[in-house]
Amino acid sequence: MQKTIKLIIVGIFILIVGVFYLSLNKNSNYDTRNLVGKKLSEIHIESFYEDKYLTNDILKKNNFLLINFWASWCSPCRTEHPILMKLNREKNLSIIGVNFKDKKSNANLFLKNLGNPYDFLAKDELGKHSINFGIYGIPESILINNDLLILKKFVGPLSTADYKEIKSIIIKK
């Protein structure tokens, strides 16, 4: 009896030390990259140009949709812009840009200078829509299929590696 208790105690401490060791090499910061495989309930977001809402209808055009949150005041958004321009040429993919907490004039200027990669353009003046998409900092992009299933989340600016990954996903099907 006493021996088992001693063994259990030693075991517990080995477990604790082991777990501590494992955690040392882990990043303690959190991001939402792993939250894939869930479905968005719907797309319902204000259009950038007109006084109307963009809805699930925009999914009909293509098999995949990349939802990109951006703003003219966000400098990493400038870095990722060329990637978006490149993605714009992909056939199987639509891109919706959501202009986040921005001034309309600044946003227009941004697109005029750097080009407009977006098939649809929406706006989120107060940022409230971003919560529905699980966004917590921009730039952030979500790749979904036309069943509204989240395939991939990109936190921070899109990189060339991300570009290749998106390409491989949309070509596979």
Partner: peptide
């Protein structure tokens, strides 16, 4: 932070 501000608005809604 920006995020906190936004999420507070949504929660109020």
């Amino acid at each position: 932070s920006d995020f906190a501000q936004t999420i507070k608005l949504v929660i109020k809604d």
